[in-house]
């Protein structure tokens, strides 16, 4: 399935999928994100790293307007996806989130069957015309999340009965099933053991063939392993944003260096 030519994806790296300009986020009186501007590339993995509380998750949640669900949260500045301002008044966050999928820190399968978990997105978005199509979408998504072989015989058992790693891959399949263009991942491996983490990382590696993947992680090794671009956040500021190699080998900002070498964080 994932035999798209590597050249093509390298070419696509030059495409800019998301542009953020001077984004400010306030939680009540707290200024959580300070003037962040960043360009996120299509069909690549972008990692947000930084010490906890630095605002990386908050910023991630701005990209599909999940912060709308928090009453006291206020976002200023401009975020464009494919050149369209997602905070434009004409934008429906529901449509936006179908285009920008999200996977959360803790695996959160719905208390439904594995099949229904994956079929949920396509169903609400009216993406399929009949059961056969839906079955196909579910299978494709589960294969895409490298879960199909493990669950194909128990599609109608509860999703909550899977192991942690499987649950997280189920959540990824669930997000993939709605055919998003961007996939946001908020510390997707923090609740998983090393083996499950490796599986999910492999999965992310293959996902970047189709999506622009943005991942928040507290693990620098993970960022180094899987991402092409890395952004370092500190105290609500975007300190440095560059190719992952550059960040880890030759950071330009002393704060980045301190963090990478373990002196802050």
């Amino acid at each position: 399935m994932y035999d798209a030519p590597t050249q093509a994806s390298k070419l696509d790296q030059t495409d800019i999928k998301i542009t953020a300009n001077n984004v400010q986020v306030y939680y009540g009186d707290t200024h959580a994100i300070k003037d962040v501007s960043v360009d996120i590339v299509d069909r690549a993995v972008t990692a947000f790293i930084g010490p906890s509380g630095c605002g990386k998750s908050t910023f991630l949640r701005c990209l599909n307007r999940m912060n709308d669900t928090i009453d006291i949260c206020r976002v200023e500045g401009q975020i464009k996806i494919d050149g369209e301002d997602i905070y434009d008044r004409r934008i429906d966050p529901v449509q936006l989130r179908a285009k920008v999928g999200m996977v959360f820190q803790k695996p959160n399968p719905f208390p439904k069957s594995i099949y229904d978990n994956v079929a949920y997105g396509p169903k609400i978005h009216g993406m399929t015309r009949n059961k056969a199509e839906l079955d196909e979408v579910v299978e494709t998504a589960l294969r895409g999340a490298a879960l199909w072989d493990e669950v194909k015989d128990r599609l109608h058992t509860p999703g909550t009965g899977l192991s942690g790693g499987q649950q997280q891959r189920l959540c990824i399949a669930r997000a993939v099933a709605t055919k998003p263009e961007v996939l946001l991942m908020d510390e997707p491996c923090s609740a998983l053991d090393p083996i499950a983490t490796a599986q999910v990382e492999d999965l992310i590696e293959s996902l970047k063939e189709q999506f622009s993947v943005v991942i928040v992680t507290h693990s620098m090794q993970q960022a180094a392993r899987i991402s092409q671009k890395t952004a370092f956040f500190h105290l609500g500021n975007l300190v440095e944003y560059d190719d992952t190699n550059t960040i880890f080998t030759n950071p330009s900002d002393p704060r980045t260096e301190s963090y990478i070498t373990g002196r802050i964080g």
């Binding site: 599909n64 999940m66 669900t69 529901v94 449509q95 936006l96 989130r97 179908a98 285009k99 999928g101 999200m102 996977v103 959360f104 803790k106 959160n108 399968p109 719905f110 208390p111 949920y120 997105g121 609400i124 978005h125 959540c171 669930r174 997000a175 709605t178 946001l184």
Partner: peptide, 20 residues
Amino acid sequence: AMRDGSLGLGATKSETIRQV
């Protein structure tokens, strides 16, 4: 987390309530 999961997939609030 259950609500976030559903909203993150692009479900409306009422869909989230009724179906999740």
